[in-house]
Nucleic acid binder design. Sequence first.
DNA 1: CCACGATCCTGCTAGC
DNA 2: TGCTAGCAGGATCGTG
Length: 276
Amino acid sequence: MPELPEVETVRRTLLEGGLAGLAIVAVRVLHPDAVHWPDTARFSRELQGRRIDGVRRRGKFLLLDCGGRTLACHLRMTGRLWLSAAQEAHLSHTHVVLELSDGRELRFRDVRRFGGFTLMEPDGSMGPPLLARLGPEPEELSLADLARACSRRAGSPVKSLLLDQAFVAGLGNIYADEALHRAGVHPGRTCGSLSTQEQGAVRRGVRTVLREALRHRGTTFLDFRDGAGEPGAFQAFLRVYGREGLPCRRCTTPIAKTRIAGRGTHLCPRCQPEGE
DNA sequence: CCACGATCCTGCTAGC
DNA sequence: TGCTAGCAGGATCGTG
């Protein structure tokens, strides 16, 4: 599940691969589900001939600057976006291919078909609605933001707050669990019950885990690959996610798995006590 | 305003 | 061995 570190790794590896400066010479949409806006004919026509000037990221969105137009891409669960040699055999579930001016291709594949592209209008309208509502990047999240959100949503579990992209952009299920373990805060704790000290620990946990995951180029369970097709390495350093029954790396208590905010949730019952 | 469950989708796997 | 039901989850939508 690509979250901030994975999406940022894709961005960096696309740039390292030399994507910026290349033109899109042809567009092939193999599955219309992967183009969210506009219709596939307009999408192809309006992208063709444009030069890719750069690649930015906002939350989990990749934003390709295409000669005055912004092409937004969301990988959701299983999306991959990578630079490929044209003669490379097609992976199954490849839905969009952008042929590039140096003979290579920018390919998008997505097994579950949740992800896809939005070609924003020249005035910036028709972008993904969530993009306009995103909260701050985690590095910009202030303690005041956190305190305000905690009092506004006093009754809801802290994990749902971390997953809310309008509160902070870029966290998903894996890093929400990892951040809360680092903070020593149970994911089911209500926002209103967190002390100022605990709020600080949560913010620190979020920032620390995202930085470390980025340093290891993201987490690959099954699907994630970067812009060069390479997997990440952070899965070896996860402390709770996917480690049900395995000893906590801090205290050796078996990691528990439960359901909070409708998501599979991993935690250490000892490091993250349920009550205060 | 906020929370929660269902929904989308396919591949993997636990269980019979 | 082979089948099926259940699970995985980011974001959205309808309901309470």
